[in-house]
Design a binder for these strands. Structure first.
Lengths: 218, 218, 218, 218
DNA sequence: TATGAATGAGAATTCATTCAT
DNA sequence: GATGAATGAATTCTCATTCAT
């Protein structure tokens, strides 16, 4: 007796529907990442979470890395809008530093993705997709740079210089962060002190302060 | 099921000989990394390259990550000595910036290892080894910080503040670097320009300049 | 690093086909065991023998132990049906003893699997699978027990008591069996006699006789 | 500068000293087994525990299995003496059953070793050692058999017949035992009942009762 | 006698991707 | 468009045993 196949997911025919489904996949990825970390994202898990079959994912993204790249673009846009919202013209440097730190604190996904961007993601994505992504990200960078200039009173061009350094600092400080290590109670006190030297909060906060002072002076 | 054994490599019996063998393993790892990248290092490959049996590696390092950690400590020491040798009291800021950039350029292994330090390496190493590593690295950091202070005429304490930010910037700029991407000739011109924005040289160089100006001002 | 894939074996799409494929894997395992013993079963070997890729095995069994557990359930069912077929109401005790011994002789796989059941298999199987297996085996035990009662004229409940002891005796006698050892011609005569004391046939046969006499008397 | 080797263990020269060292190794094995189980015994662990070097072990035992075989002979002797001490002439069958069960309960090492005897140990031991072991164990079996006869009033020869079946039952019941499984609280009630059917205590106790009744009747 | 450095075979499992249906 | 069965490469670590010293 031949059995019926399991009923397939309703097909997405219109561009809007396809866009929705794409968004649903990304949402599943975000949710999974929040719970279990970026590295544990698998295509199978994503599919199940999105209520789709594994193969279907490949109708929307050519590779796993393409999912991450799309995720990155979303996260970048979000981070940018948080930063821009937090920066207001005429604010003090201290306030700006605090605002930047605060906006960044809330964007762990952005940090995780940005760290992997050049190392892994860009190596495994069709060139056309990469070109599109680069083109899509430029205006975001420019926008943040512009906002930095106007809110901090920087000279034209300094927004981008400051922004680039800021981004590097952000990634580096995140990479140096020892995470839960500082909380292990089996660490000797002196070692705990050493570990504390590379806490994200400290390194990033101090670094931003220096960068801002530097851009003012230059 | 009893296994066979077999004599092979001359045995390292004295502490000195054992130290040498350990160093030989690390040297093999460095050589392999230089050719094929850090991620492609496997214990089997390492063993073959060092002319040892796989099991022998585990007499010297408990896990693969412990190899990396040892590698990091060596690379850190080398980087530090390059930096310290390049920094001389009384040098101009521009000269210092160039010296730091130059010293770092020659230490790609250090950068690669540092990037993975907290993310992967520290998660997979016995706590005792980690403690030892942390304790071993502190004097190196302090030494670099001291050298920064004396050569750049920084106030006490500013060497460490500057150094931490410098390290973060270094890692971040390395992480942002798009590597060979900028050289692909199938990239449209506008995209190539975008990619160029995150070249390591540029980002790191500009960033160091800002940091140094900032520490001077603060 | 993306992996390649490749089409190969015809796909099992319907539940029936999947059941067939599952059975084919188990058949491969049985064949291999018969030739080389249970302990030499490897997933790689199984895959090759079944004409499948290694990964495919894991679509049907979550772990190696799950294969063994499935094998056990099959072997149990077979052993039970052999026993039940051999036991007929009204047969003499001697005939029953001979029948049980005979039925068991032909089930070396069952014995091998049963020996490992609690020691290894049950320790490495998802709890849900274990529960299902336990539930599946109960009716078999009950059926054998019932058959023992009706064919041997045992009181209600005595079938299970006798059956449990029988199973223990079976496993123990199999475990004591020295196998080929008795046939080595480099054994001194006196030692050969000692070894003969623990031959499976002897120990099991005598033991069953005692158990049966015991259950009759009790 | 050549370093001194670590001071070696004082040499055992007289037969007594050698015997002592051998005993020390076995004692280490017993201690380890009690803590972590038989399967986790490694030659390296044994050496460390006995305060010897790995190579030294091989001066006293040719293979790992030979250690187990020696362990078995000790455990057998102990179990036999417990059994014999517990069996007194004129005792009731019920008392005898209880005594046997009790004596066995306290000999988990004996059970573990006996289970592995023919399967693994005897396969990996030099034939001469095996012959010696077989010859050494016969008088023990005979002694137990004799004791069974005199304390239970069995006919000549029945002691050995009963004893063989008893041993098989013992091993089999131990092999069927599900150990900690019965205590897992994530098991459904019905499954827990099934698991309980193969508890060592129950199966062995009931089995001995049947065997004894059987030998009385035959 | 004692040491301990060196050996190396051996195996389970994951998961991105493809493509027949 | 959607499905999900099939693929197969890729890698760490253990430990009994040997033998040069």
């Amino acid at each position: 007796m031949p059995k019926k196949a399991a009923p397939a997911q309703r097909r997405a025919r219109t561009p809007d529907q396809k866009q929705d489904r794409r968004a649903a996949i990304l949402a599943a990825a975000v949710a999974h990442t929040r719970e279990s970390g970026l590295d544990s994202v698998t295509m199978a898990g994503l599919a199940k979470r999105a209520g789709l079959a594994k193969g279907t994912l490949y109708l929307y993204f050519e590779t796993r890395e393409e999912v991450f790249l799309a995720l990155y673009l979303d996260a970048l846009a979000q981070w940018a809008s948080r930063i821009e919202a937090a920066l207001v013209p005429g604010m003090s440097d201290d306030a700006a530093i605090a605002a930047i730190a605060e906006a960044t604190r809330g964007a762990p996904l952005f940090i995780a993705l940005a760290s992997r961007l050049s190392g892994v993601i860009e190596q495994n994505v069709p060139i056309a997709t990469l070109v599109a992504a680069k083109r899509a990200s430029l205006p975001v960078y420019l926008s943040v740079a512009g906002r930095l200039e106007e809110s901090l009173g920087l000279a034209a061009g300094d927004g981008m210089r400051f922004g680039s350094a800021l981004m590097a600092l952000l990634l580096g400080a995140a990479g140096m962060d020892t995470g839960d290590l500082a909380m292990r109670d089996d660490l000797p006190g002196d070692v705990r002190d050493i570990v504390a030297l590379s806490r994200f909060e400290t390194v990033f906060g101090e670094g931003v302060r220096l960068l801002l002072a530097g851009i003012r002076r230059s």
